[in-house]
Amino acid sequence: MDASSCARDAAHLAGRVLGALRGGSDADLADFLDSCADPAAGLGAVRLVGADVFLPHLVLNRPLDARDVDVVVASFEFLSSVTAPVTTEQRVLAWHDWSTARLLAGLTGDVPAATPEDPTAVLGPAEDWQRWSVAVAQLSSLAHPGATGPVVDVVAAQPLALCRGVVRTVLRRDFATASRLTRWLCLLHAAGVRLPVDPVLLLGHIEPRVGAEPRRLLDLAVARHLVGAA
């Protein structure tokens, strides 16, 4: 699997999901996969976008097509899940996949996926909030409307560390990481957690600066939806 092809296809897929969220046609995963020059990279892209492929179904209650389910299942068959993560990247991937599999099970009525190990193993101590917030950003696909679970519980218990992390990214002008953290911030805001940072002002600051990368625009679209629903 070519990493650059996979990243490019993931951007394309995120753009399709974003279009669906904005009222356009469905993301249509099967059609997306057919459009990929390298199907292996296309399946990798489905795994990379992860749970976000279900956002139109979560946010707009769009029906889930059986062909879309087939594509997500095929992506897990093509690249198997990490069952015993050892490295940090493997731990992030395990939680990222868990979120995808859990949403798929919720939408199809299947048996939920097994929960990975303790989330503090991937996030680390919140006292080291710079490193902690970067790990939280890597798990941004877990911060979707209606999200629950061990990672959400751990992040929701540390609003100060999260706000410090997002302010740090804004000061570094790292708006890609800032957009991923803003998603978490807006999830906490929607859940009624008191925050020392105004998520609406933060969104207004980041949106014009984040660029045109569709996956980051998708993060901000989710954040905007969460703020609107709060």
Binding site: M1, A3, L33, P39, G50, A74, L93, H96
Partner: peptide, 24 residues
């Protein structure tokens, strides 16, 4: 969904590691 029907499940540690780097 014709494109991926010919893809067989594989266990490719390098590909999974690649995916892990992209996700993380």
């Amino acid at each position: 969904m014709a494109a991926h029907t010919g893809i067989r499940p594989v266990v490719a540690p390098a590909d999974i590691a690649q995916l892990g780097r992209l996700v993380a």
